[in-house]
């Protein structure tokens, strides 16, 4: 079995987002980075599938040179190797991203055979375009199921549970397939020290595709105005309990 997980490097923004001077990006000078929780679940699922079925697991990203950190994180969770489409740090729109990822998938599948499952996060954490998985699936001519909280391979097909209001919708589609997943699909393992050590020597194939002009073109970012909350202190410690109960009564919930 061959499984691919696609991930994106994003900043951990903390309590308040600060923009660069030209307001075209988040000021990440003092921030750490991660892959999105959705994608981490895709990586974990890919690792589990290959542990169970044997084969080849691969992680793919389009991002700046530093995104190799997130590729190593994925390999520390058990993924065998990585493909890094390096950018100069400029953002790519969803259409251009999907087309570069599709090319990379085709190039890897040529010598190694097709991926039975390609995992994506349901939406990227930062730009939230909700479409890269759909574009790649269409380009590859494979079925796509989105927003998954459970994935079960059953022979030549895959049973998928999608979170909807009031429960889960079930789909069964033939492999190969493209699946977009959400956090909660599984509980990703904590990477072990030996896992991290092994990840350091796993192969990362690097290439540098050219960035096409975006058709969804970012002009500027803005932090939305706060909701105008002005915190009223009800006190400190256990002595605040009566004031809290009175507030709850006033709010009509007690």
């Amino acid at each position: 079995m061959r499984v691919l997980a696609c991930i994106k490097r994003v900043p951990i923004t903390g309590g308040r987002i600060v923009l660069t001077e030209d307001a075209r990006a988040i000021n990440t000078q003092h921030l750490g980075f991660t892959m999105s929780p959705h994608e981490e679940c895709g990586v974990e699922e890919a690792a589990r599938l290959i542990e169970a079925h044997k084969g080849d697991s691969v992680v793919l990203t389009l991002g700046p040179p530093e995104a190799v950190e997130q590729l190593r994180d994925a390999m520390a969770l058990g993924i065998d190797r990585a493909i890094h489409l390096q950018t100069d740090g400029q953002e790519w729109d969803a259409e251009a991203t999907a087309s570069a990822l599709t090319d990379a998938i085709r190039a890897d599948e040529g010598p190694s055979g097709r991926f039975d499952i390609v995992f994506f996060g349901n939406e990227s954490a930062d730009s939230g375009g909700f479409q890269v998985g759909a574009r790649v699936a269409h380009a590859l001519g494979r079925p796509l199921v989105t927003g998954l909280k459970k994935v079960t391979v059953e022979g030549a097909s895959v049973r998928c549970e999608q979170e909807v209001e009031g429960g889960r919708d079930v789909y069964v589609v033939p492999l190969p397939a493209v699946l977009t997943v959400k956090e909660g699909l599984n509980l990703p393992r904590y990477p072990s020290v030996p896992g991290r050590m092994r990840a350091r020597s796993k192969p990362v194939a690097v290439s540098t595709p050219a960035r096409p002009a975006p058709r969804l073109e970012l002009v500027r970012l803005a932090v939305p105005a706060g909701q105008g909350r002005r915190a009223e202190s009800l006190g400190a410690g256990a002595a605040a309990a009566p004031a809290v109960v009175e507030m709850l009564q006033k709010a009509g919930v007690l």
Partner: peptide, 15 residues
């Protein structure tokens, strides 16, 4: 449009 689940706004041109 909304980014980051609504924590950030993006002005964009759609060609």
């Amino acid at each position: 449009r909304l980014r980051w689940g609504g924590s950030l706004l993006e002005e964009a041109r759609l060609h």
